[in-house]
Nucleic acid binder design. Structure first.
Lengths: 189, 189, 189, 189
DNA sequence: CATGAATGAGCTTTCATTCAT
DNA sequence: CATGAATGAAAGCTCATTCAT
């Protein structure tokens, strides 16, 4: 595997464990057995590395979301299900970058922040569109505020990065099913 | 107001804006017009200040939660409603510490972390208890996994610190009502 | 003597010997037996130190020039003589800062440069004024270009920082006398 | 044009603008669209490049000076005139290397410095010889100190690199004429 | 109670240089 | 001839912390 990729992966691991500010370039290169010079051969700055991580992550999410949205075989409930599954499963596959993604955005430069925020917003609006279409199609209740419901679902899913351990007693599939069931039918008896 | 309190409040403001690591003691004392010596008269370290902030915050939450739980006039739906309201409204009242609370825990020393985590866990388990009691009493569906539902609700509420602006078009009361309605009855038509 | 002053003097010595870029903060503080922290307690940056040196130097020159200009007992030839003497003698008194002053201006930030340049220009224009007044009074030839003559004199004097050793065989007084004599009467037989 | 020459010219331009220390090899090769390897194919070090620039410059000057000295058609006043013209005009033709030449000598290694200094000294002594011969021939005043007068003239000329803009209102020919006139006849009325 | 001087360890970054290909 | 990857030493600077007063 090439060095740049190794740096990215090692960084993600360290950022996730110790936080961005607490991770020094020294930490990263030492863990890889290279020198600081090597780091700066591949990256202009520590911030740029973080930006790369963020953009890669959100771009991947957006690409997978597109596949869900573009699939005309699914109804809107299924599309929502797949979206929730996407967010939760991402933890299993790429647990670490997810946590970095949700925590360290503040350390980006203003310009990088706005770039990332814009893409995150796009993801959210795509989700909202699914809700809105589902309302129109009659799959969801007519009286919903699609924007707030979207925020609620995103919160539910994203928060799980804080506690969900894919190797723990609850599987990711179980979690997705439970969340969707709760979401669709409510908890009231 | 005494100096210690001023330091805490100024710190919260700065931590919220720039992050814990990016805020220097110099920043804090300069903003207050005192010197570093003064800071170290009141606090042993920067970490201890953060610990104080965290403990004050979670202790306040726990105290308010106790009042909800101990109130025998409420049924469990109402208790859950009040809990959600407590979490969301906290943003309006104390928006800044909330964000600091949810972001900067990693900068605490291991011992401080475990102290805070334990109290956070207590808050969560108290919530879970409300769900479980509501299931027993027949207010909530019998087939719920109380633990996962609790995580879902916590995620929904806590995530709102990321986007909810109490001075924006949506009021906190509106948000609480919408969230509870969605939660209780689901989105399925 | 206080530490800040010591830092300035040590820096001047090192800048003069090795040049600004080649002198590290480490070099400066090591020579003084203090630490880098101490340096940055007194100065915001290396550049600011250089700016301080430049401004102190040119401000001193301007103050002394003022005394010459304001002295109504002198005719213009004498005033010019005193100005030349001022520039040459400065080497003897403050040899090192002079060389730093004439060499390292490029390492200042643009804003600092313009501040220093403005004051240098003022010195030059004051000199030019002496020439112009001397022309009017009949002490100097009517057909002189005061601006170019001023540049010529400045060059003559300032260049001496490149070779003149006040402890060498030629004394500063001798040099001033010779330069003035050459300047006033020319070399043509 | 060959690559080595391009490197030299680009370097001169950059050294003149930003200074030797502030110009990195990266800057140089990037401006030329080649790589660092290429640079080190042609030059052993950054210092060697600077040495090359210095030696080329002073060797050129010496060669031109020789032509002046060897021309038996000129009297000594004319020879001095031509020398002054040589120094001033060099700015117009090769403004940049001139400034580099007069500023960055300190960045050479001691051995290179002494080589350059020796040649500079030779130029100066050649000039001094002109003055001395002119004194003997009766063209210049008998009571001159040829050594100090030479320094004065050199200062006058070389200093002009600090302010003279060949594209400004004063032409180089005008400057040379004015300087020589002042020098020969003095400013006294 | 509070100050201001000083520390020292560590940080991000730069850069001349080397070298296998 | 030329490249691109890698090095390693050093640079400027930050900052939590200490302590005599």
């Amino acid at each position: 595997m090439n060095v740049k990729k190794k740096i990215v992966e090692q960084s993600i691991q360290l950022f996730e464990m110790k936080g961005f500010s607490e991770t020094s370039i020294q930490d990263i290169v030492e863990a890889l057995g290279v020198t600081k010079g090597t780091f700066y051969y591949y990256f202009d700055s520590k911030e740029q590395l973080l930006k790369d991580i963020h953009l890669t992550y959100i771009d991947d999410l957006l690409k997978l979301q597109e596949q869900i949205i573009g699939n005309s075989d699914m109804n809107y409930k299924t599309k929502l299900f797949e979206t929730v599954k996407l967010l939760i499963t991402q933890i299993k596959v790429t647990g670490r970058p997810a946590r970095v993604f949700h925590r360290e955005m503040m350390h980006l430069k203003p310009e990088s922040v706005s770039m990332v925020k814009q893409k995150r917003k796009m993801f959210r609006l795509n989700m909202q569109k699914i809700i809105e279409s589902g309302i129109e199609s009659g799959e969801f209740r007519k009286d919903l505020r699609a924007d707030l419901v979207t925020f609620a679902i995103l919160g539910m899913c994203n928060w799980s990065y804080n506690w969900f351990d894919p190797n723990g007693p609850v599987t990711d599939e179980e979690l997705v099913k439970t969340y969707m069931e709760t979401l669709l039918n409510g908890i009231s008896s």
